[in-house]
Design a protein around this nucleic acid. Sequence first.
DNA 1: ATTTATGCAAATCCTTTGCAAATCT
DNA 2: AGATTTGCAAAGGATTTGCATAAAT
Lengths: 166, 166
Amino acid sequence: MAQEFSLGTVEVALSPIERFEEFLQSRGKRITVQRRIIVQQVARRHEHFDADQLLADLAKTPDHRKVSRPTVYRTLAEMTEAGLLRKMDLSGRAVYEHDYGYPQHDHLYCQQCHKLIEFSSDDLLKLIDAVSREHQFRVLGHRFIITGQCADCRRSRQANRRLELV
Amino acid sequence: MAQEFSLGTVEVALSPIERFEEFLQSRGKRITVQRRIIVQQVARRHEHFDADQLLADLAKTPDHRKVSRPTVYRTLAEMTEAGLLRKMDLSGRAVYEHDYGYPQHDHLYCQQCHKLIEFSSDDLLKLIDAVSREHQFRVLGHRFIITGQCADCRRSRQANRRLELV
DNA sequence: ATTTATGCAAATCCTTTGCAAATCT
DNA sequence: AGATTTGCAAAGGATTTGCATAAAT
């Protein structure tokens, strides 16, 4: 009944929720009400989020059955392990985004309005490949963020040149 | 006497210490014993370090004149602002490296032994330029870290394939 | 003489943990 | 039943802050 499961062999045929349940089973973990609520809420969100935002979303939910903060953190970690989410550090706090069935991409991060803009680049992948081959490094992932000022903020601050002092 | 100073106009003619003093003056900040001790200690180190390591180094120093932890944090922030150091987040803690007079570079990060390997790539700079131009984004910096397993760790763990579960 | 810096202790922020009670299989 | 999960409260670790005192200009 508990079908053999290993990371990397599953094709994108399962929904995120199914995928998560497979993951749980393969680890002898249980499918609980809270885990279900959390995965569903995460699936509803298509942008980036952190633990607090998720908690806030959950508070608004008809599922008035509460999910505690520790459980959110625990489940987020499991979802990351399951390959559903990608975790990144943005100035001290953990930010998550979907990483299952979503095309690989990286980010432009506006230091002013804190917006994250996605982009993807095949050249980057080639570069990663070349560099790591050269160092005999086994790549398991990467973090690439270009920081600066987004187009919107550039426009609204044209007279105000002191960004670099902020 | 207090010569006009602005980021970006100073060529690499000043030593890191001089550069920092210029920065302090330009901001109406003072050149104190502690700041001098810290910059000198940082200049002695050519690898990456975090606040704790720096504090530990200082403890061993003949400058038995102590520098407190808050002052180290405060000065590290100033040095980053002054463009002497580059700050990055490695799993929750801030790690610093030289960023003045050093060639631009990025890192391979071994998740197993926590080693940082530097590399530099012109192609990456071109890529950053192309991507940000496309999004009308004003680049102020970037963070690029390729994570995985370094050559040494690959060798010593050949029989042990469970890295991805760690 | 002013004003900025320092050190101390305590506070913050985000995240994690110990443990008894509740919940899954 | 037997094991895993949950929620609570409290702990944790890194970094920051309030404030009285010390030091720099």
